[in-house]
Structures are given as structure tokens and as C-alpha cells.
Design a binder for these strands. Sequence first.
RNA 1: GUGGGCGUAGCUCAGUUGGUUAGAGCGCCAGGUUGUGGUCCUGGAGGUCGCGGGUUCGAGACCCGUCGCCCACCCCA
Length: 423
Amino acid sequence: MSENPTFNAPIGTRDVLGPDSAEWEGLVGLFATLAHRYGFSLILSPLFEDVGVFHRGIGEESEVASKEMYVFEDRAGRRLALRPEGTASVVRAFVQHHPLTPFKAWYITPAFRYERPQAGRYRQHHQVGVEALGTEDPALDVEVISLAARFYDALGLRQVRLLINSMGHDACRASYVALLRDHLALHVEELCDEHRGVWEKNPLRLLDCKKEECVAVTSAGPMLIDHLCDECRDHFTTVREGLKAIGIESEIAPRLVRGFDYYTRTTFEFVSDALGNAQNAVGGGGRYDKLAEQLGGDPTSGIGFGSGVERLLLARAAEGHDAPLLDRTLDVFVVDTTEEEYATVLVDRLRGAGFSVGRAYDHRSMKAQMKVADRSGARYALIVGPRELDAGLVTLRDLRREGEQESVALAQLDQELARRLRR
RNA sequence: GUGGGCGUAGCUCAGUUGGUUAGAGCGCCAGGUUGUGGUCCUGGAGGUCGCGGGUUCGAGACCCGUCGCCCACCCCA
């Protein structure tokens, strides 16, 4: 043991390695493939932004912006923040670069929130998601939700439900908030301790409160979904009909407000019934028709969704899936007991020919190398000792069948492997 | 931010009212089998008992502090 101090990953963060990282690799690959199929292209943007990008976007009063952001100053005194979510950065990039619309981008990114960790919640978690800017066509809402639904399906998730709501646009939301405020004013004393004093600041947030007292008050009051203007109601209806037309069921959730202030019209959340705790949302999103403008751009409507990678993998496990999302099995494992470092050449040649190849190091005994070959999960062992070297052969041993092996001429090796691996 | 549980080997965990050299299983390494993995047998390596202080003749155990992990509330992915 070294006498130097040791370090662990910071609180609320984790390392992903070994078999776990195969799950990640598989999940991300699946998402990338699907996103491409829907016409989205990858966007890379900085992990940190001027703090204003998030304040203006997700709302300074929101839980995430006010209490959970990792804010810091750089050496020149700029106020920066690690991204707590994906959308604001993408919209900032859109405003900065004026790409052709509709602009459709997908991402995989870490997201940071300063919270107490617990099951399914971390200070650094990861999200995959898409954003589409430049049209308010409800067909795009349907597309985005369809992509999410197909993704969950491809992951094997069966116990996922879609909750959907509409936040309306500026005008109809404002008139609704006035109604809600009037209602709340009559019942202030009945609200929960946390909200009794602060309900006026953001009445919509009370719809999200899970406390019995607040639920009792708000559920007796007006619902936004009943007070949409004609256009917003039509938009919402068209989205729901579109979903129905492609076989996606959605439940109207009139209390679904979600955490960010930028949402307008369509908002949705996918929840997993397999996750027993309060952290059951595996993904969510919605329309944000004012956000580009708030970030200094021309008025441009947009919609997107993000999904938590850790949550999705937890949901998969909770549903009992243990089959890996990615097969990392090696094709062959080279066991070399010659003194010639023959493995170096053979391994390189096979990799050049497209096979996945492992080998042992440090000149260990054949027995030790075979053990490593076995543990690697490789399909075949290729044994090269002095006898094979002299005869220009390798011994090809099937590690999945007891004791089956045969000699193969070096010249025929690629062909033979290709045949056996059905390539 | 509030509350509960827990920190002993790489992993999962034992460890008696405080008592001498801290254990098991799995994993790892080597040998049995100087050319063959998955089974078996034998042996081995690996621990400042999270960290710091205190009580005591004596602390893995008791007390205080601290750091960390897990879980719940809140909110979210």
C-alpha cells in the first residue's frame, strides 16, 4: 500500500466500469441509432455556461436554479454554472449559430444538481435527449414523444406510462394563474407549512406539491387544462390524436407542471411503475416556445425531452432485465507459450482482419493464460506454443464446448474463424 | 435542508460482558498436472478494523467529533 492519501469519487457521483459500462454503451448506442432514424444529429455543447443561460431558461425561482446549481467563478471572475439539464444549452447554441430550421439535435450529457443523493438520484447524473426548434407543428410533439416511447420499448421497459398536460401559452396561462390565485387566496390557511407563506410567488408550483393539504386545495380549484385558449386546446388535442394514431397511450395529468419555468403548451413525463420510490420519472420534456426569445434570439418555438440514464438502468433492473444491452464477448483469446512474443503479431493480424481479440501478458504459464482466456468470456482460445510454431499451425479451442479443439494452418486461420463466427 | 441505518481483506459479512497473533466464504496468485480454462485438492498473498481524539493496564467493540456510504422526506432524471 502506498502511504499517499486516497481519494474516492465525490459525494453523489459514481464511476461506471466493468460490466456496468457495457449497459451504458448499449443504451447510448441504441439512443443514437433511434435519434438518427428520427432525423436528429448529435450536438456537443459546453458542460458549463454563463449562469444566466440557466437562470433565464429554467427560472430563477425554480428549485433547480435557486438551490441546486453548481455555480462558480472562473479566474477572470465570470459567473458560470455546470449544466443542471440539457435544454437551455442547446437553445443557447441555436440562438448563437442560427442553423437551418427545423433544427433537430440529440445529446448525451452529464447533468449536475447539488442534492442529497438517494436511490436513483445523484449529484452528477446523465441524460440522453433531443431538442427540435423552429416549428410549433404538433406533429413534432408527436415525433419527440414517439422517439421516447420507442426508446423505452427498445430497452425492454414495459411498465412505463406517459403522463401529458398542456401549460398553455402566455396569455391563457396568465389568465389561468389569476383564477388559481383567486382560488388559493380563499384557502391560504389550508395549505401546507411550506407553501402557506409563499404561494403567491409561483402558484403553479403548488400543483406539484404532494402534501395532502395542498392537494386538497388545488384539486378543488381550477385546472389549467380546462382553461386553455382555443389555439392551445386545438394544439393539445391534435397532439393527443396524433399519439393515438400511432398507438401511443397517454394519460392526461392536469397537475403535471414539471420543474422548469420555460415550458409552454405540451408537457409530458414518463414514469416507471417498476420503480417503487418517489424517483419514478425516467424521462420528461415539453414545448418551450418562449425560450429562444428569453435567451436573446428571435422568437422560435421548440420541443424536446431528456431521459435519465441511471434511472432507465434502474428501471430495467427493477423489471427484471439482466440480459446485457451490449455483447462484449471477444471472438478469440490468444494463448502464447513460445519465447518469441508470437502473440503480438498474431493478435495484431487478427484485429486487422476485424476480429475482437484478447491475449495474456507477462509470459504466464499456459494454465494461467487459459484461465484468463476463460474469464474473458472469449468464444475461442488460440493456442500457440513451440509445437504450433514449428508446424505453422495454431490450436483452435472452443471454450464453450468441453475439450473441443483442432489444429488449423496459419494460412487458413482467418477463413476458419470467419466460418465459425458466421461472418 | 430534515430524519433514520451503516462503515472490519478486492467483494459479501462474522467477531462473545473490552483481553494476547483479527476470522470465514467468494475472488486473486502458485502448485497438484514442466502443453490446456470452467470441477476438485493443497498452499499463499492481502487488513494502521473509515479518519481523529478520549476513557482504560488493555479498544474492532465504549464515548465524542469528523468524513463517507445507504435509505426516506422534499424535488426531480
